[in-house]
């Protein structure tokens, strides 16, 4: 590898006074002075959240309004800062539309003081029940307020379209049964 020595061009007298450069700088800043402002005035104006944005983790319901989470606790396991805490529970047999799922979360807490918005919970979820959506501001006056419980998580998450209808298919299969 040859080293190429590049001679620095000597500065002219005018350049050495820096005055043309200062004038150029003043011109540039003046242009910005009169240019339209780029700022987004936050509470009134909201940024357009891009697709794939990782906001506050939320729980979503399927198009029929049923909870999707089956409390497999994979998110709890994968969560690097251990922000997620799930208490699993059995869905009682008398819940006609959900009984065949058998398992659901009794409690689902995400400590937003711990959450680092990494999105691993969303990535790992086998039921597509947890999503980091476009909610980006999360604040509270107490530590307790910063823990999102199940109700709040569903409120934030809303309903998302479902491509699979896994449990509906399972229920249909159960109702039709075997040829046997």
């Amino acid at each position: 590898m040859a080293v190429i020595t590049v001679e620095r061009k000597p500065l002219t007298f005018l350049e050495r006074t820096y005055l043309p450069q200062i004038a150029g700088g003043l011109k540039t800043t003046f242009k910005h002075l009169i240019a339209p402002k780029k700022t987004l005035e936050y509470p009134e104006q909201r940024p357009a959240i891009p697709v794939g944005y990782r906001g506050v983790p939320t729980l979503v319901k399927d198009p029929n309004g049923r909870e999707k989470c089956v409390s497999c606790q994979l998110c709890e396991f994968v969560c690097p800062p251990k922000a997620i805490r799930i208490t699993p529970g059995e869905i009682p047999a008398d819940q006609a539309d959900r009984a065949h799922v058998e398992k659901g979360p009794q409690a689902f807490d995400i400590d937003m003081l711990r959450c680092i918005y990494c999105g691993l919970c969303q990535e790992v979820c086998p039921e597509e029940a947890i999503f980091l959506q476009n909610q980006f501001s999360m604040s509270g006056y107490t530590r307790a307020e910063m823990v999102n419980h199940k109700d709040r998580l569903y409120e934030l998450g809303g309903t998302l379209p479902d491509a699979h209808h896994k449990w509906d298919k399972k229920k249909t299969a159960e109702e039709h049964g075997n040829a046997h």
Binding site: T29, H32, L33, I34, A35, K37, K38, E41
Partner: peptide, 10 residues
């Protein structure tokens, strides 16, 4: 204000 305007802020 001048600082803001030069920096494209309000």
């Amino acid at each position: 204000k001048v600082a803001a305007w030069i920096q494209d802020r309000p």
